[in-house]
């Protein structure tokens, strides 16, 4: 680890008080932020050299009742990947759009809205459909969505003597 490598980590700590931890892979860092300060942190990180938003996605933690937004940023000079994570309320998932920082995020936001139903305030386009042509049910990647029921209702099935239901075996230590 050279000085320049830790530069943005130290500066980040100095300026915002947030600490980036090392991730599981090399050159990978993880940063947990509050929903409120995510926006300004991302703006700061972009100025610090993270010019590329590689991915914006979401995880549904149904037991905790939260959604976790994941931003994967990349630093082109250092080759660092930074995973910025922010938790949202599952009942009322709302976030401010980051298209003013990373314009390309518009499509990721549409995707996250389509599959998880997270609202991005300030974006005019996030509700436009992207992948799921003519989707007519709840966002399908939420954990409380039942694909079997949806499939049974929507797609006719062949009458078949065999049962294709997977037999789930609980593995205990």
């Amino acid at each position: 680890m050279t000085n320049s490598t830790n530069n943005w980590i130290e500066c980040l700590k100095k300026e915002t008080g947030l600490e980036a931890k090392e991730g599981t892979a090399s050159l990978q860092y993880v940063l947990d932020v509050d929903k409120q300060e995510a926006h300004q942190t991302l703006a700061y990180l972009k100025r610090a050299g993270f010019g590329q938003l590689s991915l914006l996605t979401c995880i549904d933690w149904i037991e905790q009742g939260t959604f976790q937004l994941i931003f994967i940023l990349m630093h082109w000079e250092l080759g660092h990947h930074l995973i910025v994570r922010a938790l949202l309320d599952r009942e009322n998932p709302e976030f401010t759009t980051i298209t003013d920082i990373y314009p390309g995020a518009a499509y990721y936001e549409r995707e996250v809205y389509e599959f998880f139903g997270v609202h991005f305030r300030g974006s005019a386009v996030y509700q436009k459909p992207l992948f799921l042509e003519r989707w007519d049910d709840m966002p399908p990647l939420r954990k409380d969505f039942d694909p079997q029921a949806y499939s049974d209702g929507k797609f006719p099935k062949r009458e078949h003597p065999h049962v294709f239901k997977a037999n789930v075996v609980e593995v205990t230590e």
Binding site: P147, S151, R158
Partner: peptide
């Protein structure tokens, strides 16, 4: 034929 291993997918047809 019958959806195969994707029998319960919300995105694939079965027959």
């Amino acid at each position: 034929l019958n959806g195969g291993i994707y029998y319960d997918s919300y995105a694939t047809i079965n027959q």
